[in-house]
């Protein structure tokens, strides 16, 4: 899957699940989602479950954190690393 496709899938999921009604352009790729408290802890877990299922890999315990989940950019980068 191309980077742009991964990005589109992740963006669509976050908009639909956690920001219904938001202008898609307001969700920038570097917006801090976890540290900016856009996503709470339960929402973060749902993102993890979604990424695992959608892209067919498993997070290790230490990988579930802001370093990989705080923005769309970080999520896309992490998915690509795991898929490599």
């Amino acid at each position: 899957m191309e980077t742009s496709e991964i990005r589109a899938v992740v963006r669509e999921y976050i908009l639909k699940e956690f920001l219904p009604g938001e202008d898609p352009e307001a969700l920038t790729d570097d917006l801090q989602l976890v540290s900016g408290r856009i996503l709470d802890s339960l929402a973060t877990l749902r993102v993890v479950a979604f990424l695992e299922e959608k892209f067919g890999f498993e997070f290790e315990a230490h990988e579930v954190g802001v370093q990989n989940l705080d923005s769309i950019d970080l999520m896309v980068k992490f998915v690509e690393e795991k898929k490599r």
Binding site: L19, P20, G21, E22, D23, A26, L27, L31, G36, R37, I38
Partner: peptide, 12 residues
């Protein structure tokens, strides 16, 4: 028109 993201940040 209110941004949902900005609302969440305000709530935080």
């Amino acid at each position: 028109k209110l941004s949902i993201i900005k609302l969440k940040q305000f709530c935080a």
